[in-house]
């Protein structure tokens, strides 16, 4: 697979990106005023080949707008943008050959025809060589367990099956970048797990760069080494998942079961959040070691049991949004 990238070597390069929409608001029956809505504002980031990036944010934060600009179907208002060395909105058709796009809630498959037909048309669309097409099809169909379904009309597939079909469809032309928009939405736990497993394999074996928008934070935890959090159209966090915890002021919780009921425990480095009979909850910074706190508690009290709760990424992100 050949890889095209911009001058500085990044596969995706976004600098000072802006996008505003003009929205007409009705003030009376016949009159209206035009409002400028800023969807993306001062957005800067870059993605290297082989990265798996989680792109997350609340509804309306500008995620889809960004993806639409990266794929060239929306023109940026301002700023510069390069994907696989191309200018998306000017070279949309050429760029399409480098991209795979999967929307959890949309489909590219022919509703009335068997999966096989949609795949056959895709070979012509992307002019993939027949050998390459056959090899990819065989491999992905095997990995995603679609072998028995190739002759089933798409309208008869379950959501999970259709989703897997859409993913195969997005990958048959060997894209370097795969954009996934809520790929696990509506899937059951087993299907989600299988899909994540597949995406990990894809990234490991083919170095396919993944950019994933999702509300399912388990997707992020399972797949992404890097997270970009966007809010009000601008990146409020960009870094490894582990750093997100530090930045978000996230805490771990030490749950202590004492032999007898006692007043709130007081040890250095931790704060007691809750007392319920003999059980107490102590919170401490996620990046601090639990050992000294455990030792201090054990030295001062009769402890029956101890456990540590890891921080919940949802809380962390909520924390970041609220800042």
């Amino acid at each position: 697979m050949t890889s095209t990238s911009s001058a500085d070597g990044s596969l995706i390069q976004v600098r000072d990106l802006h996008r505003t929409f003009t929205v007409r608001r009705k003030t009376s029956r016949f009159r209206g005023v035009r409002d400028e809505v800023v969807a993306v504002h001062d957005l800067t980031f870059s993605v290297e080949v082989g990265e798996m990036v989680g792109y997350i944010g609340p509804n309306g934060a500008g995620k889809s707008t960004t993806i639409k600009m990266l794929t060239g179907i929306l023109v940026p208002t301002d700023g510069s943008l390069s994907v696989a060395g191309l200018d998306p909105s000017r070279q949309r058709t050429e760029l399409a050959r480098h991209l795979g796009v999967v929307f959890g809630q949309r489909t590219t498959l022919w509703w009335d025809l068997p999966l096989r037909d949609s795949f056959a048309v895709l070979q012509k669309i992307y002019r993939t060589s027949p050998e390459r097409h056959r090899a990819n099809l065989a491999e992905y169909v095997e990995l995603l367990d679609l072998g028995d379904l190739l002759d089933t009309p798409v309208r008869q597939l379950s959501l999970g099956q259709r989703m897997r079909g859409d993913i195969v469809a997005a990958l048959l032309h060997d894209p370097e970048i795969l954009f996934l928009d809520e790929p696990t939405i509506g899937l059951d736990v087993i299907s989600k797990g299988r899909l994540r497993e597949f995406l990990r394999t894809l990234n490991a074996e083919r170095r396919t760069t993944l950019m994933l928008t999702t509300h399912d934070l388990q997707d992020i935890e399972a797949l992404c080494d890097r997270v970009i959090v966007i809010d009000h159209g601008t990146a409020v966090f960009d870094g490894p998942l582990a750093d997100l915890h530090t930045q978000g002021g996230s805490t771990r919780t030490l749950v202590v079961d004492l032999v007898d009921e006692a007043p709130a425990i007081s040890v250095p480095g931790a704060v007691t959040r809750r007392v319920e009979g003999p059980r107490q909850w102590l919170s401490f910074p996620a990046d601090a070691s639990a050992a000294p706190i455990v030792a201090a508690v054990a030295a001062a009290y009769d402890v029956a049991d101890l456990s540590i709760q890891e921080p919940d990424i949802e809380d962390v992100i909520r924390e970041i949004y609220q800042r």
Binding site: I73, R92, T93, A96, L99, R106, T107, T108, I125
Partner: peptide, 13 residues
């Protein structure tokens, strides 16, 4: 109407 046309535009056709 549904926005699915976006997927049509992603294809090099």
């Amino acid at each position: 109407r549904t926005g699915d046309v976006a997927l049509d535009l992603y294809r090099p056709v």
